[in-house]
C-alpha cells in the first residue's frame, strides 16, 4: 500500500515536471515568426499560417487538452460535419483503396494539381493484409467493419471520423479531411466503404 502511495506521489511529480516544461511563450511572436518564415508564399497560401481555435488549443496543450477544452473541441468540430444529401454514406471501396494509398495533394510541388488529393491512410494505419507497408501513428483498422458487424451507426461514426476526427478524438493527430476540404464528400464515402464494406479487403 505504502509503495502505491509513493508511486502515486512520484507520478504526480513527473506530471508537474512535464507541465513546467511548457514555458510561457508569446504566441503573437510565434505567429509573426511563422508569417515571416515563408516569404515566397503566394497570397492564397497565407491562410495556412493561421490557426483556428482548435489548432490553437491543441498546440498550447501539446495535444492533451484539459477536459473542458476537449469537450469544447468535440462540440465545435461535430457541428462542422456535413453529410451527403441523399444520406448514403457508402461509396466504392476500390476508389477508397486508391485514396488510402495516395499521399498526393496540397504540397507546394503538387501545383497545378495532376491528381485528386489522397487520404494517405496507409501512412499511419494498417488496413489490409496485402499492404505490409503501413504506418503506426494511428491504430490498425484491419477488420474494422467486420468487428463492428457492419452496423449503420458504426458506418455513420466512421464517416464522421474521416470527415472530422476531432469530433470523436479532440486533438487527434488525424487531419480533419472533410472540414478542411482536403477530401470531398464523395471521396470520404469511398474511404468509409473501404473500412465498412463486407467485400472490402479490409474485412477479408
Amino acid at each position: 500500500m505504502r509503495s502505491i502511495v509513493i508511486a502515486a506521489i512520484l507520478l504526480a511529480g513527473t506530471v508537474s515536471a512535464q507541465a513546467q516544461q511548457k514555458p510561457a511563450v508569446d504566441s503573437a511572436k510565434i505567429d509573426a515568426a511563422i508569417a515571416a518564415a515563408f516569404p515566397t508564399a503566394p497570397p492564397e497560401w497565407r491562410p495556412r499560417f493561421d490557426q483556428d481555435e482548435t489548432m490553437k488549443v491543441c498546440s498550447i496543450h501539446h495535444n492533451v487538452p484539459p477536459k473542458a477544452d476537449a469537450d469544447a473541441i468535440q462540440a465545435r468540430e461535430k457541428a462542422k460535419i456535413e453529410y451527403p444529401a441523399d444520406g448514403n454514406l457508402l461509396g466504392d471501396w476500390k476508389s477508397g483503396e486508391r485514396l488510402a494509398q495516395s499521399g498526393y495533394g496540397l504540397r507546394f510541388t503538387d501545383y497545378p494539381a495532376r491528381n485528386p488529393n489522397g487520404g494517405n491512410c496507409y501512412a499511419c494505419h494498417q488496413l489490409t493484409k496485402a499492404e505490409v507497408s503501413y504506418g503506426t501513428i494511428g491504430p490498425s483498422l484491419l477488420n474494422y467493419g467486420k468487428v463492428r458487424n457492419f452496423g449503420a451507426a458504426e458506418t455513420k461514426a466512421a464517416y464522421e471520423k474521416v470527415y472530422n476526427a476531432q469530433a470523436a478524438y479532440p486533438c487527434s493527430n488525424m487531419p480533419r479531411f472533410g472540414t478542411n476540404k482536403v477530401l470531398t464528400i464523395e471521396q470520404i464515402k469511398d474511404l468509409v466503404a473501404l473500412v465498412m464494406s463486407p467485400d472490402s479487403p479490409v474485412n477479408k
Binding site: I30, G135, I137
Partner: peptide
C-alpha cells in the same frame, strides 16, 4: 518548442504529429 507543437495548414500538422511519441512509423 512552441513551433514544434504548433499545428497549422490544411492537414493540422505540427512537427509533433510525427515526432512526439516512441516507436511509431510512417509507412515503414
Amino acid at each position: 518548442q512552441a513551433i514544434f507543437f504548433r499545428r497549422q495548414g490544411p492537414h493540422d500538422f505540427a512537427c509533433a504529429t510525427c515526432h512526439a511519441d516512441s516507436g511509431k512509423r510512417i509507412r515503414l
